[in-house]
Every structure is written in structure tokens, then in C-alpha cells.
């Protein structure tokens, strides 16, 4: 036993200098995220992207031009990017797509005016000033999201250092973090976990399945995610969202990070 302790100490610090230090020390170099859009390049009557999209995330207008892309349905499978002959849809490295309003995941060609800044920092701090305790519920995932959530407690991400903890009992939880499509059989246990949580309580829809059903939703058993099931505070698409994306979404919920995506577009700084 003491040997293990020495061994651990000898290996030094493995934890990433992120999100507080180096901006690119998140460990996700080289991974592809949601497709980027250069709408002006779109050719008439091409249809290829919409035809190939496995989750019907892409809508075209009557000319066959890209009209809207719902990142809440996107599983980042890259098929549209690979098939687009015009370069309208391009490979993107952006994976931190957490938003507070579901509509903010929808890119449209002619966006409406951006809504006013939604919440003040003081709002969340009243109820979650200290640490955040998270109850995770798998409501029918592929286990990809669980694999990345489990990674949050490995020494590289070391979620504890941010004051965020997973907890066993919903009675002790502030946040319900839901993965999966919400299958017929998991709907009741999910709602029971929500009911068991004391107010104030929040919900994070983690992964495209929980946001919209994703690639696996809409069968006789699988459901279509959390829409209409629970009041969601943060929507995080991704298939699965990587551990850094999950951390970004948790910090967004706590208003310790600003929301970067609005109206399906990046708004940095």
C-alpha cells in the first residue's frame, strides 16, 4: 500500500493546466467537432448533405440551399463535411457546444436578433455558491458518455479541483446530469431521481442523445431525449461530448464560463 503512494508521488502532477492556465492544455488536440458552415459557398440543388445526414439535422430551402443546421441533432459523424462538394460544410475543431436555450443550437441562414444576455452571475451564486454535487443518470446511452464522464475523475481532468463532485444520492445532488435517449424503461427511474432531489435543482442534457435522441432516438423503445421530459438548464450536444466539453458545460451552468454558442454560431470574447 505505501508503495503505491510513493509510486503515485514519484509520477508527479498529471493534471491539465486547464481551464485556468494554458488555453490549449485540454487534451483534445486533433479531435473533430461540429461542422463549420460557410453558407455563401452552397450550390443550388445539391442536396447531398441533407441526404447523407443520419439524424436529419440539416434542412434545405426550396432552391436546395442550406437553410438550417441543428447542432442539437448533430452527432459530428463528419458525413456531411466529407460529401459537401462546395466547401459549405467544413471540418470543425469546435466541441464545446453547451447552451442554455435549446434554440441556440440551431444555425439558420437568416438568424433573428440575438436575445439579451440571459442571466446574471448573482443568480446562480445564490444557490450554488459552494461546490456542485452531480447525480448522473444513464437513461439509455451507448456508454460513450459514461466513459467520458468517468474520465472526468481521472488524474488528467481531476474534476474535484473545480469543486464539482459526483454523488450517490439524488437527495444530496444539485444537478441531474442525464445521458441517453430516455428509453421507455428508464423514463420512470429518471423521473424518480429528479423527484428525489431537493430544490433548487438543475438539469444538464449531456450528449446528442439526451438533447434530441441523436442517432439512436425514435424507435419503439428509445425515446427522443429530455425535451418535454425534464426542464433542462444546459444542453450539451456531442457524440459523445469529450471530458473537456463536459467541464465547459458544467462551468457554463455555474456561470463561471460564458456561453460561446448563440444562434448556432460562435461568439467568442
Amino acid at each position: 500500500m505505501p508503495l503505491w503512494t510513493l509510486r503515485g508521488l514519484a509520477q508527479g502532477i498529471a493534471t491539465a493546466d486547464w481551464p485556468h492556465g494554458a488555453a490549449d492544455a485540454h487534451g483534445q488536440q486533433g479531435t473533430l467537432g461540429m461542422p463549420r458552415i460557410a453558407a455563401e459557398r452552397c450550390a443550388d440543388a445539391c442536396h447531398r448533405c441533407a441526404d447523407v445526414c443520419p439524424t436529419q439535422a440539416i434542412r434545405l430551402d426550396t432552391r436546395g440551399h442550406l437553410e438550417s443546421l441543428d447542432y442539437g441533432r448533430c452527432v459530428a459523424c463528419q458525413l456531411c463535411v466529407e460529401t459537401c462538394p462546395a466547401g459549405t460544410l467544413q471540418p470543425g475543431g469546435e466541441w464545446a457546444f453547451g447552451v442554455r436555450e435549446r434554440e441556440d443550437l440551431e444555425w439558420t441562414l437568416a438568424p433573428g436578433p440575438l436575445p439579451a444576455e440571459e442571466r446574471l452571475a448573482a443568480h446562480i451564486e445564490q444557490s450554488f455558491r459552494g461546490s456542485l454535487h452531480v447525480r448522473h443518470v444513464d437513461a439509455g446511452s451507448c456508454n460513450g458518455c459514461e466513459s467520458e464522464l468517468q474520465a472526468l475523475n481521472n488524474p488528467f481532468y481531476n474534476l474535484h479541483r473545480l469543486g464539482i463532485f459526483f454523488t450517490a444520492s439524488p437527495r444530496a445532488a444539485d444537478l441531474l446530469l442525464v445521458t441517453g435517449t430516455v428509453t421507455a424503461a428508464m423514463r420512470e427511474p429518471l423521473l424518480a431521481a429528479w423527484e428525489a432531489m431537493p430544490a433548487p435543482k438543475r438539469v444538464l442534457a449531456c450528449g446528442t442523445c439526451a438533447v434530441s435522441g441523436g442517432a439512436c432516438g425514435g424507435t419503439y423503445a428509445s425515446g427522443r431525449g429530455l425535451d418535454g421530459v425534464l426542464p433542462v438548464d444546459v444542453w450539451l450536444p456531442g457524440c459523445p461530448p469529450n471530458p473537456a466539453a463536459i467541464i465547459e458545460a458544467l462551468l457554463l451552468l455555474l456561470e463561471r464560463k460564458p456561453q460561446r454558442v448563440k444562434g448556432g454560431r460562435l461568439h467568442d470574447g
Binding site: 439509455g140 428509453t183 424503461a185 442517432a215 439512436c216 425514435g218 424507435t219 419503439y220 423503445a221 428509445s222
Partner: peptide
């Protein structure tokens, strides 16, 4: 088991 049955084969 099968609480997570999504009907993947049907999909």
C-alpha cells in the same frame, strides 16, 4: 437488464 433497450436493431 434491458432497461436501456433502445431497439437499435430496428433503427
Amino acid at each position: 437488464l434491458f432497461l436501456k433497450h433502445r431497439g437499435m436493431e430496428a433503427k
